[in-house]
C-alpha cells in the first residue's frame, strides 16, 4: 500500500466516523470538560482517599492511631537531633514549636510529591480497566496528605497552646494551609505525570527533597543565619522566593509568638503566587498527557 493511498483511506474513515457521530476512543477531552468531569467524580476522590488510608493502617495493630503517632514520633526525633544534640536552637523563642511547625509543613509538600509520583504507576491496572479522569488519583493522594496534615496541625496547636497560650492570629493558619494545599495539588499532578513517563524520578526524588529540606530554613532561622554570615542584603530576597520557605514562614507567623524577628520578606504574596502558578500549571501539564496514561 502506498502512503498516499493509506492517508486517503484514513481521511475517508475519519469522514465516515464523523458522519455517524463517532468519536476517537482515546482522545484527550477538552480542558473545561475535563475539569467538569473531575468535579463530577469528587465523591470517588474522597472515597478512594479514605479507602487508601484504611488499607494503609489495616495491617497495623494500633490501626489509625499511627496517624497521630507518626508525626509525634517525628517531632520527638527532630527535636532530639537538632534542638538538643546539634544546638541550633540558639536565639529562637519556643524552638520546639518553631522546628516542628517547619517540619510538618515541609512533610506535607514532600509526601504529596513522592506519593504523587507513584499515583499512576501503582494504579495501572485500575486505569486499564475503568474509565475515569486520571487526575482523580493524584488528587486523592493529596486528600490523604491533607487529612494527615490536619492531625499534625492539631498536635502542634495543642503544643503551642500549652506553652504560649491561645491567640487570635491562629486563624491565619487557615489561609496558610489553603495556599499550601493549592501548591501541593499542582506539584502532585506535575510529579504524577513525571513519575509515569520517567520512572527514574521516584529514585531521584528523595535526593531532591532532602536538598530542599536543608535549604528551606526548617532547623534554623534564615535571617539569623545570613546575619551571622554577613551576607549582602539581596540574598534574603532571593531565598525568600523558595515556595517551601514561604509556606513555612506564613504558618509560623500564624502560630508563633515573637516570630517577626525571623520572618522572611513578602512571604504572603510569594505564597499566593506559587499557589496559583503551581495549581494552574499542574492541571494543564497533567491534562496534556491524559490520553497516554494507560500506555507503557
Amino acid at each position: 500500500m502506498s502512503t498516499a493511498a493509506e492517508s486517503a483511506k484514513t481521511a475517508e474513515m475519519a469522514a465516515v466516523a464523523e458522519r455517524y457521530g463517532l468519536s476517537r476512543s482515546s482522545a484527550r477531552p477538552e480542558f473545561r470538560g475535563y475539569l467538569r468531569d473531575l468535579w463530577g467524580r469528587r465523591q470517588f476522590i474522597y472515597t478512594y482517599a479514605r479507602a487508601r488510608t484504611y488499607a494503609l493502617y489495616a495491617g497495623a495493630r494500633l490501626g489509625s492511631i499511627w496517624q497521630l503517632l507518626t508525626p509525634l514520633l517525628n517531632a520527638a526525633v527532630y527535636y532530639l537531633a537538632f534542638g538538643v544534640l546539634l544546638g541550633t536552637a540558639k536565639g529562637i523563642h519556643n524552638y520546639p514549636a518553631f522546628l516542628i511547625c517547619g517540619m510538618f509543613v515541609f512533610t506535607y509538600t514532600q509526601r504529596s510529591m513522592t506519593e504523587g509520583s507513584r499515583a499512576i504507576s501503582t494504579n495501572l491496572s485500575l486505569i486499564r480497566t475503568l474509565h475515569f479522569p486520571r487526575a482523580t488519583l493524584p488528587l486523592a493522594y493529596v486528600v490523604n496528605e491533607l487529612n494527615q496534615m490536619f492531625i499534625s496541625m492539631g498536635i502542634l496547636l495543642v503544643m503551642v497552646g500549652v506553652s504560649d497560650g491561645l491567640a487570635l492570629r491562629w486563624f491565619l493558619i487557615i489561609p496558610a494551609l489553603l495556599l499550601q494545599t493549592m501548591f501541593n495539588i499542582g506539584m502532585t499532578l506535575i510529579f504524577a505525570r513525571l513519575g509515569t513517563f520517567l520512572t527514574d524520578i521516584s529514585q531521584l526524588l528523595p535526593f531532591i527533597t532532602r536538598t530542599w529540606l536543608y535549604a528551606s530554613g526548617i532547623f534554623f532561622s534564615i535571617p539569623d543565619k545570613l546575619a551571622a554570615l554577613d551576607a549582602p542584603g539581596w540574598v534574603i530576597h532571593v531565598l525568600a522566593l523558595n515556595p517551601i520557605s514561604a509556606y513555612i514562614d506564613i504558618a509560623r507567623r500564624a502560630l508563633l509568638e515573637e516570630h517577626a524577628r525571623h520572618a522572611l520578606p513578602n512571604a504572603w504574596p510569594i505564597a499566593v503566587g506559587w499557589a496559583v502558578i503551581s495549581l494552574v500549571g499542574g492541571f494543564i501539564y497533567f491534562w496534556r498527557a491524559e490520553d497516554r496514561y494507560g500506555r507503557g
Binding site: 484514513t10 474513515m13 475519519a14 466516523a17 455517524y20 457521530g21 463517532l22 468519536s23 476517537r24 476512543s25 482515546s26 491496572s125 485500575l126 486505569i127 486499564r128 480497566t129 475503568l130 474509565h131 490520553d291 497516554r292 494507560g294 500506555r295
Partner: peptide
Amino acid sequence: RAIAGLLPPASGAIYTGGQPSLLGVNAA
C-alpha cells in the same frame, strides 16, 4: 482495551459511538 479507550494506540485511530464498557476478569 484499545476499543474501550483504555490503551491508546501508537498509530491509527479507533472511533466509537458512545462510551464502550469493558467487562473483564482482569478488572483490578
